[in-house]
Amino acid sequence: MKSFLAKAYLWVLLIMLYAPILLIAIFSFTEAKVLGNWNGFSFGLYRSLFTLGSHTSLMDAVANTLIIGLVSSTFATLHGTISAIGIFNIRNKKIKGTMSTLNNISILNADIITGVSLFLLFVSLGVTQGYVTLTLAHITFCTPYVVLSVMPRLQQMNPNTYEAALDLGATPFQALWKVIIPQVKGGMVAGFILSFLLSIDDFEVSVFNLGTNGLQTLSTFIYADSRKGGLTPELRPLITIFFLIILAILIYANVKSAKQKKTSKA
């Protein structure tokens, strides 16, 4: 009985949580301009979403989001991993503490403050805002998460393996590549996925650092579109596709970590 009530509670809440997305998904299969009207089943919205030329600005925004997401999460992963190794090996407790405090600032900070502060930085330096500043902003808020995902792997590692590699004649770079990286790879992958998701999800930092050249990411496009009033109907299939992609990434990550746990137990 107790377990039944608990299950029922979870399912009611889940249905409520997913009702909005499900509604969007259902109405992505009809061509009605207004959501809620059903004009019969059709793939029309999906077709017009992917037809070249009909929604260039929307697809441009999607492309920008994915490119900036990939570039910034790749950079953040490399940069964050090297930095985590560096921070992990600082002996001085005070310096180490300062570094991890600095690393945590942007994680604990509100996105809007990160956005405004970076905006003021670029304005003060006289940098024209655009693709570069937007990517830099994304790298700024992604890297700390990579550092945080790699750090626990370093703590689990046997510290003598690196020294052993050096004693056996490896250069520091070889030791990094052949000894440390393989052992922290899991943390790097987790950091990369997290960075990518954070980057494509971001709105509040992006909106302040886009510049005025008409550069849009998906979030800012949706925002601008919703301000104009009537929402582009093609957003419905797009939201549905994004939802499915994220679902796939999440299931992949969960299955993988479950497998790893199994193999590490065996």
Binding site: L23, F27, I222, I239, F243, I249
Partner: peptide, 24 residues
């Protein structure tokens, strides 16, 4: 994972979907 997944979906998409639900 299902309970935590919504936080990975773009905040504006989630909000627009909610607005659509209210409209519906």
């Amino acid at each position: 994972a299902l309970f935590l997944m919504p936080m990975l979906i773009n905040v504006l998409m989630r909000t627009l979907a909610t607005v659509a639900l209210f409209g519906f």
